[in-house]
């Protein structure tokens, strides 16, 4: 059963070319990807290959020009109470306390106030930040803010969770502990997650499958099954299987990053 089926998706943007002439930037082309119900899928690819663009389309924040996307066997809807997105920059409302931030998704869905409070508290506990319920986001560290952002989207209980480099702005230790935390939470209820990252290690540790994209115009070049046992912990980094998969993914990506560099050099 597929949660999402992207079929020959194409997306281009009108841009100004080198001499200021009108040009078209083909970002996604012939992009095919099937995402299974309940899987953790990571998207890897060189910078600018269209990962965020695809995620935005899935989130209903952008349109596609060609092809089609089915979600639960139905045409993708622009408006849906079934999705939630987590951004690299947290996107917390600065005028709301942590607890109030957690409630926003439930407010959108018109959940009654008392139930909202209760759910928000429960998910805040899940990420270990109950003590900070009444603080404002600017009073928290980056890692804590991203925990709040994740708790917020989890409290909303979407069936499709989209994450665009959520841990990219964090230091290495915070990042690793948040990865393990996300795994623990996800392994408990297995909602579908599409996770964009630049880190091969992160993608392998978290995912059931890793989709590697080509340089722009982006499409899925190859999909790697990650057959590491779950529940996973930090230790799998030391396993042989991890090293083998890592090497394979790295080779796939190296070629594409090389292509991006080349095209940049030609332009410069």
């Amino acid at each position: 059963m597929f949660k999402v089926r992207a079929d020959r998706v194409g997306r281009c943007f009108p841009i100004r070319g080198q001499e200021g002439n009108r040009d078209i930037l083909r970002v996604l082309e012939e992009f095919n990807l099937d995402i299974r119900e309940g899987e953790f899928l990571s998207l890897l690819g060189p910078s600018g290959c269209g990962k965020s663009t695809f995620l935005n389309i899935l989130a209903g924040l952008d349109d596609l020009d060609q092809g089609s996307i089915l979600v639960d066997s139905e045409e993708l809807k622009k408006h849906s109470f079934d999705r939630g997105m987590v951004f690299q920059s947290y996107a917390l409302l600065p005028w709301r306390t942590v607890l109030e931030n957690l409630e926003i998704g439930l407010e959108i869905r018109r959940v009654p106030r008392r139930e909202r409070r209760e759910t928000a508290r429960r998910y805040l506990r899940l990420v270990g930040l109950s003590a900070f319920a009444h603080q404002y986001p600017h009073q928290l560290s980056g890692g804590m803010r991203q925990r709040v952002a994740i708790a917020r989207v989890l409290a909303y209980r979407p069936n499709l969770l989209l994450m665009d480099e959520p841990f990219a702005a964090l230091d290495a230790q915070t990042r690793e502990s948040l990865q393990i935390e996300l795994l623990r939470i996800w392994e408990a209820d297995r909602k579908t997650i599409v996770f964009v990252t630049h880190s091969i290690d992160e993608a392998i540790i978290l995912s059931d499958r890793v989709a590697v994209m080509t340089a722009r115009p982006g499409r899925v070049k190859e999909i790697m099954e990650i057959n590491l046992p779950r529940p996973r912990s930090e230790d799998i980094r030391n396993s042989l299987e991890f090293a083998r998969v890592r090497q394979a993914v790295w080779l796939l990506i190296r070629d594409e990053v090389g292509k991006t560099r080349q095209s940049l050099r030609i332009r410069a």
Binding site: G60, S80, F81, R83, M85, F87, S89, A91, G105
Partner: peptide, 12 residues
């Protein structure tokens, strides 16, 4: 990004 975050959750 605040607006996009709310829109991804289906806000009107």
């Amino acid at each position: 990004v605040l607006i996009r975050s709310a829109r991804s959750m289906g806000a009107s």
